[in-house]
Simulated scan of single mutants.
Amino acid sequence: MRKHIVIMGMTILLWGLPLMGHAATFTDRSGHEIEIRSPFKRIISLYAAHTENLFALGLDEEIIGVTPYEVWPPEALKKPVFNYRKAPEKIIGARPDLVLIRPMIARAYPSFTEKLKQAGITVVSVQPVGIDDMYQYWRTLGILTGKEEEAEKMIFRFKKAIRTIRILSHTIPATRRKRVYFEAIHKKMKTFTPASMQLFTLTMAGGINIANDATSVRKSNIASYGKERILSLSDEIDVYLAQKGKMNRISPDLIRQEPGFQKIKAIKNGQLFIIDEHLVSRPTPRLIRGAVDIGHCLYPDIYTREIWQGIKRIMDNSRLSVAQSAYHKIYQE
């Protein structure tokens, strides 16, 4: 029996698909048909978010390689490193049965992925484009690895944590709601699109995106805004938030010293905060940590340590594997 599922932008439900003796096929984000006869057991992940999520699903020994850009969990840093920018022979020599990539890699390095396929390796391109897609993306990883039940549990815990955070944010009166400018790239004065994961975490925590009229750049989650428009809102920006990481290598001093920024209300009042890029940009369960961190910046009297302890208990699971236990150490910081 052969089952077929087409993923159109990662929006088709994939959960509940039995693999017991049946082949299943689906179309990945790059338009390639993928056949699954049994769970993949030797996986190389070439996108750090894939790696985080695979560990969150309870995988460890099955992950035989990762990218040079891993930051979490600690176990990922101990895995052999592979790079899609280099010749594929090293990957082929590791004998993976599955290589996970994202559409950008498929577009930019077509000969690389083609050589992997010619070597008999299944290459799957997946990446969500929003929060709803993220749930289907987690389910896809579950199906590929035989961890469908774990994927559903991960989604359930994530949604439960979201509900808890939203209940908290609903207690904040409209008169106390903070208007926030969320910086994506300082040098280019760019912010995020309203549908981005970064603004999902901000609004979940009770913040108001003051740059809601920003326009997307090349259909990405990055949006153009410009210094002139930022400064035109100087008196209205209660909090200036900036992500920091590979995309935006900044510091509080760099932002404060930007000509004209001394006029911004948030800068004058000491309401400038830096958020770890990895907590708000990657489609992983750690988005919950990002939302709580933002909440603490905006409303420290509401998003207290005690509140975080309660939320982390929701995200924790008493029946975790060794790999998952390591992954969840972040909730004990």
Rank of each mutant, 00 (worst) to 15 (best):
F158K: 04
L17Q: 12
P252A: 09
F158L: 03
L77V: 01
I330D: 01
R102K: 11
D301I: 04
I210K: 03
I267T: 04
H22D: 09
D301N: 12
V124I: 06
S224F: 12
I34N: 10
F26M: 09
R107N: 09
K246P: 02
L320H: 05
W72M: 03
Q136T: 14
K219Q: 11
I43M: 06
L287K: 00
G290V: 00
A291T: 05
G16L: 10
P300N: 12
N212C: 06
S38G: 05
A266H: 05
K86G: 11
K190P: 01
M315V: 08
W72F: 13
R163H: 12
P173Q: 02
L168W: 05
F55D: 03
E150S: 13
R289S: 11
Y84K: 07
T201G: 00
P88C: 12
I302V: 15
Y109D: 04
I121D: 01
I237H: 00
L100C: 04
F40V: 03
I172G: 09
Q243H: 00
T304D: 08
P252N: 09
I267V: 15
E306Y: 05
I7R: 08
E149T: 14
E75H: 04
I274V: 09
E183R: 00
E277C: 00
Q136H: 14
I165V: 09
A108S: 14
Q257M: 13
A195K: 14
I237V: 06
M104S: 10
L13P: 15
S224M: 13
A205T: 03
K227F: 13
V99K: 08
T164Y: 14
F40E: 04
T175L: 10
T27R: 13
I208F: 06
G16F: 10
